[in-house]
Each structure stands twice: as structure tokens, then as C-alpha cells.
Design a protein around this nucleic acid. Structure first.
Length: 404
RNA sequence: GGGUCGGUGGCAGAGUGGUCAAAUGCACCUGACUGUAAAUCAGGCGGCGAAAGCCUACGGGAGUUCAAAUCUCUCCCGGCCCA
């Protein structure tokens, strides 16, 4: 069973985030629209499920179709016809994920990290790109993002103490540059931002080392913000990054225990890239407000479907937290939901919805047998139906976490 | 009727005396997926067995050989050509 911290339970903390596009209640989950689209699901459908904020990606949109083009189109919201808010990732994660891939494919030359920034080569055409903290901010401003992330370095796991230390120091220096540049741009465009500027979040790194995680958080808090030309209160929010990069699962909960008590209570905390439902519940209990993850959409496309266990259909965060057990290996095991692989033979003649009590478009209209069939014959409609249901499940999860 | 080429696992298709229970692809079964180079990736896929192994299998039958999916004969079936 998990303990829910006083300062952790969101109702007693911030409760919502306001962007120029609207109010988003916390804790919340963000579907991922990396290239300007949640794969196979329309913005209208995302809105209908209840989502108010989606994540877009600096790196991908920078290369295609280009942030300036998106800007000419009227910003990402208009370009992709999304009426809610948008958070953009900084591209820091791509330094990590594409770097690992480039290393595997081309040796170490694929991604080069320097003080200045991260130099990539596009493996398809060999084009070189230099992503600097300033460039990342420029791109995100061009996209007209509502929540902008600082460029960070996301170290892989395993990572030595020394490397993690160097990495977090670089992330802090980059964060300072992002902060300075961001507020310079905002003050240069007062007219544009008179109704409200985007928010700027920093990212705590430090791998799996307690000392380093705390050091990272403290460094980011102790920046002389006014000297850098920004407001004294500093960051608009804090992200915990470099998690779920291959480290032992139980480390996540330790990292949150180290970091969240240091962060200001009144500002939102964002756990980047996570996670499974039990991880989200545990993280909310530890004081996290924001999440994003490819799991509901990607796993949906691959046939894994999330389903509530009956007795948890109307439960609240306390009930969910009580039903997370600790496994022998430190993993959290949830009993409030299950997953099925809808491609399994046993669903061939399952002429019933995934969950008769689920009010999503998929469950209201389609059977498991039908979705299994579509997946088996590679019909893209299956991806849409599975994604919608899993996204609805995640939305329901967050609703429960918002309900005391 | 004559000639000729061919018949291989659910399908397509390699293999042309031993290392073949048989490449590869598809289909099928099962898993994985955590700030999305992901409609991707991994494993399994004749039967029995935990395994070693045993049994049954490359159209049917009969041979040659220590050994046959592979060589010979014959039958059946199909494609093409000639009458």
C-alpha cells in the first residue's frame, strides 16, 4: 500500500494549470502527438474523451515540416486543429534515444554533445543539425507551445556517478540559457504575449543517485533568475526527467521521494515519459501532477488493451493506492486493472465490448472480436479503436486520481 | 495418343545422395513495448516428451544404397507443346 503525502495529493496543492488556451485540472495525463498528430486519433476525438492538453515534439516538428512553417500556419494549435493546450518536449530526449540508435548504427558519430548543444545527423539524408538551448526555445515559441521545456541532457542507464554529475551540470547550464533566452524573447514580444506568455519548465536530472538528484533540483531552484532577465519566481514548473530509461523499476519511487519534497508545493511537477497506471498512481501519491506516455497509444496499436477490474470502476485515489502491492523485485503490482492482448486467439468470437461500462466510442460501438479481426488483417481502424479506448482508460484513471 | 516440365510443411517457394523435421516469406500462436525513427520488435510454429530422444513426413507404391526430399521403375495428378 502506498502512502499519500499531504503535500502530494494534488487537491491540497495546485489543482489546475492555466494556459492561454484554457484550464487543465491536475493531475493529468497528456496524449502524445509527436509529429503533430496523436497517431490514428483525431483532435476532436481526443477532446471528446476529455483531454485538454497534448504533447508535441520540438525535434520532430523542427525537421518536418519545420517550426517556421508551423508558425506561418498560425501555430501548432491551428495547424493541427487542436483546441486545447500544447506542451512541447525540448528535443532532449531525442539526444538520448536517437543517440543510442546512432551509436548502434554508425558508431559514436551520430550525435555529438558539446557545451553549445547537441549535434545530430539525420540518418536518412546525412543532414547535420545543431540543437542548442536557444534553438529549442525558438522552435517551441514558433510552434506557439503553451508549456515549453528546457533542453536537457537525458543520460542513459546505466550511467556512472561522474557522468551523471557532469550531465546534470550541463542540464543546469542549458536551463539557465533557456531561461535567459526565453524571457528575452518574451519581453521582446510584449504585444504578442500580453494575454499571457507560455510557461517554462526546467528538468531535474541526476540518474539514480540521491545526492545528484537533489543537487540537480537545488541548482535549478537557486538560479539567480532576475539576473538572467526573468521573474524572481523563476520556473513555472518542474519536470523529473531521465526516468524509465532502463533503470530498475523501484528506482523511480526512490527518485520521486528524493526530489518532490524539494520542489515548491505551489508549482506543477511533471514526470516525463511515464507510465503504467500503477506508476502514475504512485507518482501522484508522491506529488506529481503531470504525465505523458506512449503506452496507451503504442500498446493499443500493438493489441494491448487496458481494462478496469470491476470493483474499481468507481473508486478514488485512496482505493487505487491501497491496491498497489510491492512485488519481490520492488515492482509495484496493481490489482485495480488488467490488460488483455486483444490479438489472442481466445477473443476470436468475443462478440462483446472491451468493457461494457466504459463510455468510450470504441466500447459503445465495437466488439473485441471485431477489433481482433481488424488488427489481424492490418486495418488501421483497429489502431484508432484501440487507441481511443486506452486513452479513455487513462483519462478515467486521472479522473479517479482527481477525486478524493 | 506422343513429348516435355513439374508435384516439398496451412500457402508461396528453396533444397537435387548424408550436416534435412527441411532455407526464406506469408499466415498462424505467444511475448515485449514507459519525455514515439515503433501499424514495431522478439520468440514459437509435424507428433509425443521436462530433456536426451523417439515416431511420422517432401504426390502413391516398389527399388538401388550403409544412407533418399534428392537416383531408378511404375502409378496418380497438373502445366505447356505436338497430333
Amino acid at each position: 500500500m502506498l502512502t499519500i503525502r499531504d503535500n502530494g495529493f494534488y487537491k491540497s496543492r495546485i489543482g489546475k494549470i492555466e494556459t492561454k488556451k484554457g484550464v487543465v485540472e491536475t493531475p493529468f495525463f497528456m496524449p502524445i502527438a509527436t509529429k503533430g498528430s496523436i497517431k490514428h486519433v483525431s483532435p476532436e476525438e481526443i477532446l471528446q474523451i476529455g483531454y485538454q492538453l497534448v504533447l508535441g515534439n520540438t525535434y520532430h516538428l523542427w525537421l518536418h515540416p519545420g517550426d517556421e512553417l508551423v508558425n506561418r500556419a498560425g501555430g501548432l494549435h491551428k495547424f493541427m486543429n487542436w483546441q486545447g493546450s500544447i506542451l512541447t518536449d525540448s528535443g532532449g530526449f531525442q539526444v538520448f534515444s536517437l543517440g543510442a540508435r546512432a551509436k548502434k548504427n554508425f558508431g559514436s558519430s551520430g550525435v555529438k554533445l558539446t557545451e553549445k548543444g547537441a549535434e545530430f545527423s539525420d540518418h536518412t539524408n546525412g543532414n547535420r543539425y545543431l540543437l542548442t538551448p536557444e534553438k529549442s526555445i525558438d522552435i517551441q515559441l514558433n510552434l506557439d507551445s503553451d508549456i515549453i521545456m528546457c533542453l536537457d541532457e537525458c543520460p542513459p542507464y546505466p550511467c556512472s556517478y561522474e557522468d551523471a554529475d557532469k550531465s546534470l551540470e550541463l542540464t543546469t547550464r542549458w536551463a539557465e540559457r533557456c531561461f535567459k533566452y526565453f524571457h528575452k524573447k518574451v519581453s521582446e514580444n510584449k504585444e504578442k504575449y500580453k494575454k499571457g506568455r507560455p510557461k517554462l519548465f526546467c528538468i531535474v536530472q541526476g540518474s539514480i543517485y540521491e545526492e545528484l538528484r537533489k543537487k540537480s533540483a537545488k541548482q535549478l531552484l537557486e538560479i539567480d533568475f532576475e539576473k538572467l532577465g526573468g521573474p524572481r519566481e523563476g520556473w513555472d514548473g518542474f519536470a523529473v526527467g531521465g526516468v524509465a530509461v532502463g533503470e530498475p523499476r523501484e528506482k523511480l519511487y526512490e527518485i520521486l521521494d528524493w526530489v518532490t519534497p524539494i520542489l515548491p508545493k505551489e508549482k506543477p511537477r511533471y514526470l516525463m515519459g511515464l507510465g503504467k497506471p500503477e506508476e502514475i498512481v504512485a507518482a501522484v501519491c508522491a506529488g506529481i501532477d503531470m504525465f505523458d506516455c506512449v503506452i496507451p497509444t503504442r500498446e493499443g496499436r500493438h493489441g494491448r488493451i487496458f481494462i478496469w477490474n470491476d470493483e474499481f470502476k468507481t473508486k478514488t485515489i485512496e482505493d487505487l493506492a491501497k491496491n498497489i502491492k510491492e512485488g519481490d523485485d520492488g515492482k509495484k503490482i496493481a490489482t485495480f486493472y488488467k490488460t488483455i492482448n486483444i490479438t489472442n486467439e481466445k477473443f476470436r468470437e468475443s462478440f462483446e465490448s472491451i468493457d461494457k461500462d466504459c463510455d468510450c466510442y470504441t466500447c459503445k460501438n465495437y466488439t473485441k472480436a471485431y477489433i481482433k479481426h481488424l488488427l489481424a488483417v492490418n486495418e488501421p481502424f483497429a489502431f484508432r479503436l484501440a487507441s481511443i479506448h486506452n486513452l479513455a482508460f487513462y483519462y478515467q484513471l486521472m479522473q479517479k486520481l482527481r477525486t478524493k
